[in-house]
């Protein structure tokens, strides 16, 4: 009898310890891992951009011309860096191709079937709100006029948020259409959509933010206005 009671209580203590360890893993360790992964993705991008010949880009292109169509993005690889000053001036995250679970552990994920960065259509990006570095933790703080700045190594793209974040259901894929439904946009244009989960720790809904392309400039022209303090 005593042996049974002892074994059962030892098991309970063990399970409790494992649960506490799991909470530590989810809340803390995924963040440590994600920060490391995101830094390495950004390093990888910067290496890639540094190796690219300078002469090939920006020469003879007039300022108003649309940026050239980028090459296809390889799945699961980073291709841009996003800056959102509203989330803090040091906030910058890599954008990777695809929205697979493993891809989203290393940065933000670009919906593969949506438009490319800066092109006509809707450039849609998903990110974690909680866990894995909490990239979109402050998502509800986004307000109309906030800048979302991206760079692909040759061009700075400044998008401007047009509406407060919109709450919708997970199946509402119309929000990443070329002309997103419910966004208030009527004509085709160069749009950006950000998606994350809602509520903060749940998955019953999604939060959506829409922006339109406001300005582009070649990287040689320096940082865009929105990123200057």
């Amino acid at each position: 009898m005593r042996v049974i009671v002892r074994t059962v209580s030892e098991l309970c203590v063990t399970i409790g310890t494992v649960i506490v360890l799991f909470v530590v893993y989810v809340l803390f360790w995924t963040g440590v891992k994600a920060d490391r992964a995101m830094d390495s993705q950004i390093d990888q991008l910067q290496d890639q951009w540094a190796r690219r010949p300078v002469a090939a880009q920006g020469s003879g292109r007039d300022a108003d011309a649309a940026p050239p169509e980028p090459a296809a993005y390889p799945d699961g690889k980073p291709f841009a860096v996003m800056y959102i000053p509203r989330f803090g001036f040091t906030w910058n995250k890599p954008v990777l191709q695809g929205t697979a679970t493993n891809t989203l552990k290393k940065g933000l994920g670009h919906y593969a079937r949506t438009a490319k960065l800066g092109q006509k259509g809707n450039f849609a990006v998903a990110g974690h709100r909680r866990t894995y570095g909490d990239p979109f933790k402050d998502f509800p703080e986004l307000r109309p006029g906030d800048a979302v700045v991206l760079t692909d190594g040759t061009t700075w793209f400044t998008y401007r948020i047009d509406k407060k974040p919109y709450r919708t259901l997970p199946a509402d894929i119309g929000v990443i259409d070329p002309v997103p439904r419910k966004s208030g946009y009527r004509e085709p244009g160069r749009y950006l959509t950000l998606t994350t989960c809602e509520p903060e720790w749940g998955h019953s809904h999604r939060l959506i933010a829409w922006a339109h392309l406001d300005a582009t400039q070649p990287v040689e022209a320096g940082k865009p206005e929105a990123l200057r303090r």
Binding site: G127, R129, F136, A171, I173, V175, T195, C197, R206
Partner: peptide
Amino acid sequence: PFNDVTVDG
């Protein structure tokens, strides 16, 4: 549920 951040499931 923390991984569900996309709208296309």
